[in-house]
Design a binder for these strands. Structure first.
Lengths: 155, 155
DNA sequence: GTATAATATCCATATATTTGTATAAATAAA
DNA sequence: TTTATTTATACAAATATATGGATATTATAC
């Protein structure tokens, strides 16, 4: 159990439970819980987790940004995709057993205009492009999902 | 793009496309594609990916084992869970925005006897235990998902 | 069983990641 | 603005991971 993962898991929990408006406060909390770390590390954790500063009526608040952390999920989802093939009219992805629904749901949520729908079985997902020329765009995107590296600072 | 990830991605693809009955054959294929590696590395990759040897009517074949790689997915799913809370009768998980359905689906597929059902919104999943005493078992399990480390050799 | 082939692992090394310190850069307050 | 506060980053050290060579272990064939 890498300490980094435990720490980041706890950070996500704390952010979803408490109102955090600066790194020092959260740092104090984490230290009190036994995490040995500095502000520099917390800053890096925020970047990796996709934590953003938002201005609410109650002042500044740090929250997990869906779009940012979505990038991370994308990489995780890619792990579940085994192959992509296609014919003249549609794309077929093979996934780990039982994961087609989960992968398809993720794809659906992207609301990509090139994709008009998906159908998922147990380990197979059909992806229907809006037009033939969109096919390559979609395939490139999926291949990227498959090979993108996890936990990677976006500078 | 860590070479390891690219390589393992390609291994998954190849295994789902071709019949592979020994490591040397696959090794040759991978080397031909430009991966610089040895059998030792391939052996370790198989272990990490959850690749297993099965006896088919056509002889031995290496395939991705759903149960084994399921352990990996579990760790990936854990990333999407932000917190777990409960009252007297049910458990509530918060997830990253838009990921509740995906997480719930994963939980459903586990067919745990302690869980009689889940209901998911956008970022919230209700988990209904079969009895009150199951609650702690379920919570412990979910917490484990949340902190379990990714990519970790199971010796 | 024994021989052969295939795979896993020990050890050493190369490579990459994580982190703290110090400080620069950015943001908010005055 | 100018100052104070907060956050991000360059650099270096520590830590962890990945990998090849050699070989032990395991599985298959005989």
């Amino acid at each position: 159990m890498p300490v980094k993962l435990k720490r980041q898991t706890r950070i996500k929990e704390l952010l979803s439970t408490y109102i955090v408006s600066n790194q020092e406060d959260l740092l104090r909390l984490l230290k009190k819980e036994g995490f040995e770390m500095t502000q520099a590390t917390l800053s890096r954790d925020f970047a990796e987790l996709g934590v953003v500063r938002v201005f609410t009526d109650g002042g500044i608040r740090y929250i997990l940004n869906a779009e940012e952390s979505g990038k991370q999920i994308a990489k995780l989802i890619g792990f579940e995709i085994l192959s992509v093939q296609h014919n003249e009219s549609m794309i077929v992805m093979r996934t780990l057993a039982g994961r087609a629904q989960g992968v398809a749901h993720f794809i659906d949520r992207l609301n990509k205009e090139e994709i008009i729908g998906t159908v998922a079985g147990d380990d197979t997902v059909l992806v229907i492009p809006n037009k033939v020329v969109s096919m390559q765009i979609i395939i490139d995107f999926i291949k990227k999902l498959m090979t993108e590296s996890p936990q990677h600072r976006n500078k």
